[in-house]
């Protein structure tokens, strides 16, 4: 699965940071061996064939009845999710979602774990729009977006020297900076802003939160089934992500008018890793396809 392959891709970074990954499922050793050979997985894929560990964690999927999906071994699967422990084995973070397909991308996991954001680099699309007071650069932390896998959209604000943007919590008379991310086939979470500076406004006797210099904002982002469907390849090679920055820039003596700048990032999509099991269902769909197109070849 995508998640297991992405973990392999970030394995050097994880180990350099002192973390060792493990994956657990009720798959048999044979199936895990086949998968790890095909996708070159070198970290441990653990086989909890009788779901004893899954039960001990209390995360057995009890919506599946014993005997259901026997060939696929549905009974005994966990609710999918992940834990991070410290060196003593104490849980310090966990990530579970109500929908089975949602999980953090490799880079989003690194971001959450280490607090680091990758620089834009070769192989990653980036876009910049320069306004009068601020230049807005947007790029994705991962090379591609994948169905329901939560990546990180990085929005870097370069604020011109001597200027500041008002942050959330500034008096109502000022327009606080805000970021909006929109696009067809994407879903985004709440932007995470860096801690603002406190600017002393002596004549008002106020400390006002502002952003100055460089501010890096991160936004959780994923692509939905509107544009990527499991078992059907890609309808389109990329999605357009529009980032709008509403802001009011001021120096120590005067303020500009509130304004909005916008930049559009084209993010490539990635076909899903589709292990053998899912092909059974894709093949069953084939008659539907010919029925929808009765004039086509049989």
């Amino acid at each position: 699965m995508t998640q297991l392959v992405q973990l392999q891709q970030i394995l050097p970074a994880l180990r350099a940071a002192g973390y060792e990954p493990f994956a657990v499922s009720n798959d048999t050793v044979d199936r895990l061996a086949e998968f790890s050979t095909r996708y070159h997985i070198t970290y441990p894929l653990l086989s909890d064939e009788d779901s004893a560990v899954i039960r001990a964690f209390g995360i057995l999927n009890t919506l599946i009845e014993p005997g259901e999906g026997k060939h696929m071994r549905w009974y005994g699967i966990p609710y999918p999710g992940s834990y991070v422990t410290d060196a003593a084995g104490v849980v310090i973070d966990k990530d579970f979602h109500q929908h089975h397909a949602r999980r953090l991308s490799g880079q989003a996991l690194l971001h959450r774990l280490l607090g680091t954001v990758p620089e834009p680099h070769d192989g990653i699309a980036a876009t910049t729009t320069a306004g009068e007071a601020v230049a807005l650069t947007a790029y994705l932390a991962d090379p591609t977006l994948r169905l329901e896998v939560i990546s990180t959209l990085v929005c870097r604000l370069e604020i011109a020297p001597g200027l500041h943007l008002y942050a959330d919590g500034a008096p109502e008379a000022f327009t606080a900076v805000s970021l909006e991310v929109v696009g067809h086939g994407i879903r985004v979470g709440e932007p995470r802003w860096p801690e603002p500076h406190q600017l002393e406004m002596a004549e008002l006797g106020l400390l006002v939160p502002v952003h100055e210099g460089t501010a890096v904002v991160t936004v959780p982002i994923t692509v939905t089934s509107e544009v990527v469907r499991l078992g059907h390849g890609l309808d389109q090679p990329a999605v357009e992500v529009v980032v709008r920055l509403r802001h009011q820039a001021c120096d120590d003596t005067s303020c500009g008018l509130p304004t909005t700048i916008e930049t559009t990032l084209t993010v490539p999509l990635q076909e899903l890793v589709e292990p053998d099991g899912i092909k059974v269902y894709v093949e069953r769909l084939a008659p539907d396809a010919s029925a929808a197109n009765p004039g086509g070849p049989v």
């Binding site: 297991l4 990954p21 493990f22 966990p78 609710y79 999918p80 992940s82 060196a87 292990p275 099991g277």
Partner: peptide
């Protein structure tokens, strides 16, 4: 690892 472990529970590598 020196700092800890990441334990991922997934539904299956087969499907």
């Amino acid at each position: 690892g020196e700092r800890g472990a990441i334990l991922v529970f997934h539904r299956s590598a087969y499907w």
